[in-house]
Each structure stands twice: as structure tokens, then as C-alpha cells.
Amino acid sequence: MQIAGFDFPDDLYYDSKHSWGRVEGNIVTQGLTDFGQKLAKEIVYVEIPPVGKAVTQGQTFMSIESGKWVGRIPAIVSGKIVAVNEELEWEPTLINKSPFDLGWLVKIEMSNPAELANLMRADSPEFKAFIEAEAEKYKAVLKGGK
């Protein structure tokens, strides 16, 4: 689905920090949305967390750097990290180039699937309103490109 000119695949879950989650069984793959990577701009470093690390929904668990800004990314669900995208150590801009595919961050084994209810879906009016408000707020930044 397109909202404010940005792509938000229908099958994903979204949080308000511009992360997406793809649910496959008990595993959730997390990444940054196209909108999120455009706000962050060119990502120069990614700190890959260790596999096995426990994470909590909404709590930060990994760092990325863009524009001399070391930002932290909150986990989209609680659980245990079971896989990390090691490719990002080589090529952090994969997050910019392919946010929904090659630029995925981690896979988390959910400890509480009920938490998915705290996330938003692309087709919900709530999410549409959220993204439209964000797009309006940052229209100057988003227009600037890279």
C-alpha cells in the first residue's frame, strides 16, 4: 500500500518508530521502513547485535549511525534474536537501498505473540493518519533526497 507516496507492504506490521516486522510462524524479521531510512538518510555504520540476545518490545537493542548521529533502534517485539543480517557490516546502505528486503536487520523469535496487537497494519486508518502526519511534518527533509 502507498501512503503519502511511500511504500508500506500490506503483509507487514509497523511500529511508530518506523520499523517493520514480517511474521513467519514464531519468527519476526525486523527492518526499517522506506520512510524511516529516508528520514535517517545515508547509513554509515550498523552495530549488529549478537545472536541469542534477549530484546523487549519498544526497548532499544542496536545502534546505527548516519550523519554523525548514533541512533538506537527499538525492538518491534519481545523475544530472542535468532539471526542477524551480517551483510550490513559490509554494506550498511543496504538499509537505504533495499529497506524491505536485503536491508533487514534481525530476526526475533517472539516470546509473546500477543504483542503484535500493539503494532499497526498498513491498511489501518490509524497507520495512514500516522504516516500522513509524519510526512507532512518532515516534508522538507524528505524532499531533500539522500
Binding site: L39, G67, K137, Y138
Partner: peptide, 9 residues
């Protein structure tokens, strides 16, 4: 605090 890095700077 704006959420966008550029706006913040």
C-alpha cells in the same frame, strides 16, 4: 525535539 535528524540539527 523533532523526530527527524536533519530537523533536529
Amino acid at each position: 525535539v523533532p523526530a527527524s535528524r536533519e530537523e533536529f540539527y
